[in-house]
Design a protein around this nucleic acid. Sequence first.
DNA 1: TTTTATGCAAAGTATTTGCACGGGA
DNA 2: TCCCGTGCAAATACTTTGCATAAAA
Lengths: 157, 157
Amino acid sequence: MEHQHSSPENDAQHWLACLQSNGYRLTEPRRVVVETIASSQQALIPFDVFEKARSSYPSLGLVTVYRTIEKLEELGLIQRVHQPTGCQAFVTAFSGHQHLLICQHCGRVEFFSGDVEVIDGLVKTVGDTSGYKIQGHWLQLFGVCTGCQKVGPGSEN
Amino acid sequence: MEHQHSSPENDAQHWLACLQSNGYRLTEPRRVVVETIASSQQALIPFDVFEKARSSYPSLGLVTVYRTIEKLEELGLIQRVHQPTGCQAFVTAFSGHQHLLICQHCGRVEFFSGDVEVIDGLVKTVGDTSGYKIQGHWLQLFGVCTGCQKVGPGSEN
DNA sequence: TTTTATGCAAAGTATTTGCACGGGA
DNA sequence: TCCCGTGCAAATACTTTGCATAAAA
């Protein structure tokens, strides 16, 4: 079991470099959107990103947030988080470590690789039993993070 | 590993009884919506339900489909299916056997209980390591069912 | 200079709500 | 009879598109 962390500054720099090397231009609006998502430990919906990013760049439009998210998702740098309360939020994507642990109070997301053999074994068994050709899987855990266990909902940022 | 099946007729009767015992009236529109969802092996979005159910009851309104789905979900009889392509579809909910295997071509959904000890062990480890109070989990596998492996996409109903 | 990106406004989707009428109990 | 359920139309929420201007390369 490993938990994954990465430095937000590095993420932001890496994402910007990725955008550029894929033929997209580096603009101030993109920079603030990228930095906002990369520096957040919680899953953010487009409107959250819009509001946070506007404090650095007030003339930002919500449409630009949608368009930047679209590109980051395309490039596999962020991923959509599905929750009982909605499926509009995004967080950093780690390749090969796609299992999420999500705090239901503050939206904080942790990553865990899990025991790869255990999960692979399970997947294989289900594939064999069902006859399905298995293409992928989602494993997500929901709970309350240590911070929210102490202070209650909505208090973490 | 067990796969779960249930008889659609029984589901429909059970769901209608459940609605009634929760103070909801038994109406023809509800009956056709319930029968449509209960008899489908694929996840259906509200508009699919609307179209199918209208063949039995042409004056059905889409709004009634939404309202009936809402009640069935409230009562835990159906559950929303989250997929890369969207999160509007619903299928029967089995209590305690919530793991899904979804065909990406035809939308067919199978249920498997998985190896409970394996999953519980994993969940416990993640809880201990992270400090989160774990409240629930989602495990979904995506693949192609045996029928669609033979005939290609969109052919199964 | 050339082409892409931006923000606004408008258009699309998906879903929910208000309301008068009709049907279940 | 009484009240809930229905379908329609309108409202709402979320997201995408068209377009003229602005900025990157």
